[in-house]
Design a protein around this nucleic acid. Structure first.
Length: 472
RNA sequence: GCCCCCAUCGUCUAGUGGCCUAGGACGCCGGCCUCUCACGCCGGAAACAGGGGUUCGAGUCCCCUUGGGGGCGCCA
């Protein structure tokens, strides 16, 4: 029996949770859930210069919104710096690491020279075997890992397959800075080991790190976790999506009106598939998720498809549940406070209109905008097209119709439809010639749910009032 | 420059040597439905990057070319 699966999502707190990170988190979460294991959360905050509390908040908020929960408290890598330092010193004591007295300037010069001469850009190992007695005065050394120079390092990856690196391609990386603080590659190894992580699921941009980290695991005599390097998400231009290159934070997607469930579904389908299945619940996702169904090629983010999926989710959500979703969305929308209050106060009316509104919205923004006519104050502001219809004979039609509606006691869609159609027939005009002016007066626009549904959901008095407002 | 990875419709993908006349989804185009716009339904155009092998048989295996991506920090 294999040990329980432990995965981890390890973002660096340098900004919001971007879409690539969100998918990495999703895959970690899915794999843990699918195998009865748990996902841990670790904040990679060893670089204090780039750390910010707000970023940590944004990341936790983003994960929570997406419905991706983690076990225990968020683990701070920085808080375990002392442990990392001890390991670095242990490696030094064992002769598996050494002090390097090159200054940052020298290293930069080394890189630039290598680049200029077309040589591989690596640390040349100057201090690897040099006597410490030759150390210059006043320079605090860094500690470098003494990486093997011959042979090869194999990353046996669950997605990428067997990837072989010649050890001569990998230089001696710094594990402890001159100020005594540990660097990423060392900290990751120590933490993953200490946290009992069994599977490392992260983006392929870490593939080379996987090789270097494997060498450290080996030097420490620790077992290397199962490696799973998933392809990256690219922007429309085919380049890696990153914070400084087109990637938006998940909070932006929330503000654009995407539902977390739709988001999860869409993200899961980016790089992973289960036959021809496109729309599936989170439960199914967990049941079906497997590493071998993850592709190796990078995927481009496609808003059109996300939008379509989101529309499907909106339509499939029960009305009262959707009203709840609107409530949670409103604070992130651009609706003013007064309108938001009306949405809350008019919840029942909103639910009554949702059936007709749902089919017409692909995002929560569209949904909310579509519902706005419900809470508009008389006299309604008319958009250009609506005004055009009313001015172009619409008012006259309404003027004739109002008498009929005034006498209408049975205010149901069926009865109203019967009434209006009979009126159209009697007047020998097409239903559309009545429906559009009605829609214009009732909603202030030319687009809305079925006009009889609108009459009903608005109610008799409000409907009659809005119509009267637009009779010349 | 060096190392690594990738390559099926515009996009996401199915495909694991014969079931492929290459399937689905989004998008696009046309039609139906119709009080508007949607939804829904029906139909259509649209891809195995190129070249060599291997094999009775290659989208599927191998090699090369081309194209794309990632990495090469006292960042993570």
């Amino acid at each position: 029996m294999s040990p329980p699966v432990v995965t981890r999502f390890a973002p660096s707190p340098t900004g919001y949770l971007h879409i690539g990170g969100a998918r990495t988190a999703l895959f970690n979460w899915l794999y843990a859930k699918a195998n009865g294991g748990q996902m841990l959360l670790r904040i990679e905050d060893t670089d204090r210069d780039r750390y910010s509390d707000e970023a940590v908040e944004a990341i936790l908020d983003g994960l929570t919104w997406l419905g991706l929960d983690w076990s225990g408290d968020a683990f701070s890598q920085y808080a375990h710096g002392e442990r990392h330092r001890e390991i670095a010193l242990q490696l030094l004591a064992e002769g598996k690491a050494y002090k390097c007295y090159c200054s940052p300037g020298e290293l930069t010069a080394m890189r630039e020279a290598a680049r200029a001469e077309g040589r591989p850009i690596r640390y040349d190992g100057t201090w690897r075997d040099r006597d410490e007695a030759e150390a210059p005065d006043g320079i605090a050394p860094v500690i470098r890992f003494k990486a093997p120079q011959d042979g090869e390092t194999v990353v046996d990856d669950q997605v990428q397959g067997r990837v072989v690196y010649q050890n001569k391609e990998l230089d001696d990386l710094i594990i402890l800075r001159s100020d005594g603080s540990p660097t990423y590659n060392l900290s990751v190894v120590v933490d993953d080991h200490d946290m009992g992580v069994t599977h490392i699921v992260r983006g392929v941009d870490h593939l080379t790190n996987a090789a270097r980290q494997s060498q450290i695991y080996l030097a420490l005599g620790w077992q290397v976790p199962v490696m799973v390097h998933i392809p990256l998400i690219h922007g429309p231009d085919g380049a890696k999506l990153s914070k400084r290159h087109g990637a938006l934070g998940v909070d932006a997607y929330r503000a654009m009106g995407y539902l977390p469930d739709a988001m999860r579904n869409y993200l899961a389908r980016l790089g992973w598939s289960h036959g021809d299945d496109e729309v599936f619940s989170t439960e199914q996702m967990i049941e079906w998720f497997s590493l071998d169904a993850i592709g190796k090629a990078p995927a481009r983010f496609d808003f059109a498809k996300l939008e379509n999926l989101n529309g499907i989710y909106i339509r499939n959500t029960a009305d009262d549940e959707l009203a709840d979703a609107i409530d949670s969305f409103l604070p992130y929308s651009e609706m003013d406070a007064a309108t938001v209050a009306k949405f809350h106060a008019g919840r029942e009316q909103l639910i009554g209109a949702l059936a007709g509104l749902k089919a017409r919205a692909r995002t929560m923004i569209e949904l909310v905008n579509g519902a706005a006519f419900l809470f508009a104050e008389r006299p309604l502001k008319l958009d250009e097209k609506a005004a055009g219809i009313l001015n172009d004979g619409g008012r006259e039609v309404l003027g004739q119709l109002i008498g009929e509606l005034d006498n209408q006691a049975d205010w149901t869609t069926e009865a109203l439809e019967e009434k209006v159609k009979a009126f159209a027939e009697a007047q020998d005009i097409k239903l559309g010639k009545i429906a559009q002016p009605l829609r214009a007066a009732l909603t202030g626009t030319t687009v809305s749910p079925g006009i009889f549904d609108v009459l009903v959901v608005l109610g008799r008095d409000e409907s009659l009032g809005r119509i009267r407002d637009n009779i010349s």
